[in-house]
């Protein structure tokens, strides 16, 4: 199949602003899906609310545009009902890390098999450019006219502390690598987090004098520092030379660990023994009933 076969062209044109990076992420995701040869009927996508969430309308899969911050919780229910389906959850930075922060850390802790894509543009674009949990300290937004006074979340560190078993970061500049990482993340049997730094020239870029879309992507290129290869335990070493790059952004796969996946573990540890015990008990009472 061609990448465009995974699109609902009926609902084009899309609503994203000129220069927005979200289309690049959608393209990379579809490339990954195409490369993996997934059947469209086997893909479920759940999203929250915001610019990121609108991706779903354009993808020809089972798509669920849910509530702000809650996409992972909805996706958890889908996965529990149909563990055989491939579940992908694109979210914005506010969606995943502010209003949905609790679901994010618990989905990571559970290690339930789905791919969370954090489309991080450091702002709330849909509502007009307010500061988000990933806006840098001192940066501007419509609700931070004097600059923010808080530290941003580091998505990779947060996912790592919460126990996600696959963690990666990439940017819209690194589109081809993004497609490879997303394919790897989808294939990974556990909770995968892929943070994608994406440009919002309309709000974040304009408010923070980051230039146009191309300049913002060149910024990703210039700041990106690849992490080292994964060691035997599935962890990558991050080596940053502060002299070499101003404001470095480590990119690549940070963690790829094999751990018990939730649906699988629940089936093996809970359902199978409970079903067996119930069947044995029913057989015993049937035998006892027969003797009466």
């Amino acid at each position: 199949m061609a990448v465009t076969d995974y699109l609902r062209k009926r609902f084009m044109p899309h609503i994203w602003c000129p220069g927005c990076g979200h289309g690049i992420i959608m393209r990379a995701l579809l490339s990954a899906v195409e490369k993996l040869g997934l059947d469209k009927n086997d893909i479920v996508m759940a999203s929250g609310i915001g610019c990121s969430a609108r991706m779903l309308g354009y993808v020809d899969a089972h798509t669920m545009h849910t509530l702000h911050g809650r996409a992972l919780a909805f996706a958890t229910g889908v996965k529990m009902a149909r563990p055989d389906l491939t579940v992908v959850v694109p979210m914005g930075d506010g969606d995943a890390l502010a209003i949905g922060g609790n679901h994010f850390i618990h989905a990571a802790r559970r290690n339930i098999d789905m791919t969370a894509i954090v489309m991080n543009n450091s702002t709330y674009g849909m509502t007009g450019g307010q500061y988000s949990p990933t806006t840098g300290c001192g940066e501007y937004g419509t609700t931070a006219p004097y600059g923010t006074v808080v530290q941003p979340f580091d998505t990779v560190e947060l996912a790592s502390a919460a126990g996600a078993s696959f963690i990666a970061r990439t940017t819209t500049y690194h589109a081809r690598e993004m497609a490879r990482i997303l394919a790897d993340a989808i294939r990974h049997p556990g909770f995968s987090v892929v943070e994608v730094l994406t440009q919002c020239p309309t709000y974040y870029g304009r408010k923070n004098a980051k230039g146009d879309a191309v300049e913002m992507m060149e910024g990703f290129r210039d700041c990106a520092v690849p992490v080292g290869p994964l060691d035997d335990s599935g962890h990558a070493t991050v080596t940053i030379d502060p002299e070499a790059v101003d404001a470095p952004i480590p990119i690549g796969v940070f963690r790829k660990e094999v751990r018990a996946e939730y649906c699988d573990a629940y089936r093996r540890q809970v359902i199978e023994p409970a079903e067996a015990a119930a069947a044995a008990s029913a057989a015993a009472s049937a035998a006892a009933g027969g003797e009466q």
Binding site: A73, A75, T76, G77, V78, M80, A81, N102, H106
Partner: peptide, 22 residues
């Protein structure tokens, strides 16, 4: 399957997701 979620919001959302999947 029984699932203890992180809060009631997550609970109802997971329930709706599972129902949509049949």
């Amino acid at each position: 399957s029984f699932m203890q979620m992180e809060d009631e919001i997550g609970s109802i959302c997971a329930v709706i997701g599972a129902s949509l999947a049949g």
